[in-house]
């Protein structure tokens, strides 16, 4: 299982520019090398305000389409496994905001996470891994972590 170090402090700019093609997710440690972009689905298959689960090798990712501000898709990708409930359900959570932070709530016991940093806002000892996500030729792509070891 991949372990990620996250640093919520580094991700204070809560509303990053949408569709940040090719940039790594805000607030995460440098990518373990090398990373590989994996096609998930056409962006038109996503429902604004909802998530889907995607399989990246042995990793499960929850990809959310937050909307189309300024006409471009605003996407986020975090780990799909709820660290409290230990079930692969995060893609089925409801997205929203807490203050200026974009959030997703676990559908199991409703803990809320920052979609930009992965930090759990209700218990800062937990966090979700965050994945880079982009749209390439109309297809959503997520970067797969590859264990450095």
């Amino acid at each position: 299982m991949t372990i990620l170090e996250t640093d919520p402090q580094a991700g204070e700019s809560a509303f990053p520019e949408p569709n940040a093609v090719g940039t790594r997710a805000r607030g995460t440690a440098p990518l373990a090398e090398p990373a590989e972009w994996v096609a998930v689905c056409p962006v038109t298959d996503l429902t604004p305000g909802r998530g889907v689960a995607a399989l990246l090798g042995d990793q499960q990712v929850a990809v959310f389409l937050l909307g189309f501000p300024a006409g471009s898709p605003d996407l986020r990708a975090v780990g799909n496994i709820d660290p409290f409930g230990r079930a692969a359900v995060m893609s089925r959570g409801l997205v929203g905001s807490r203050g200026a932070v974009r959030t997703v709530a676990s559908p199991l016991l409703k803990q809320v996470y920052c979609l930009d940093t992965g930090a759990c806002l209700d218990d800062d000892t937990y966090a979700l891994p965050v994945y880079p996500v982009r749209v390439s030729a109309g297809v959503v792509e997520v970067a797969r972590w590859v264990d450095a070891a």
Binding site: R86, A87, Y126, A127, L128
Partner: peptide
């Protein structure tokens, strides 16, 4: 591909879900 994290145990005669192992997620 079915979700590989879902598993059940019915060895006792009653089918029960088996949860993932301890969370391998950052704890600070």
């Amino acid at each position: 591909t079915p979700d590989p994290t879902i598993a059940f145990d019915d060895s006792s005669g009653r089918k029960v879900p088996v949860l993932l192992g301890s969370p391998a997620f950052p704890t600070r």
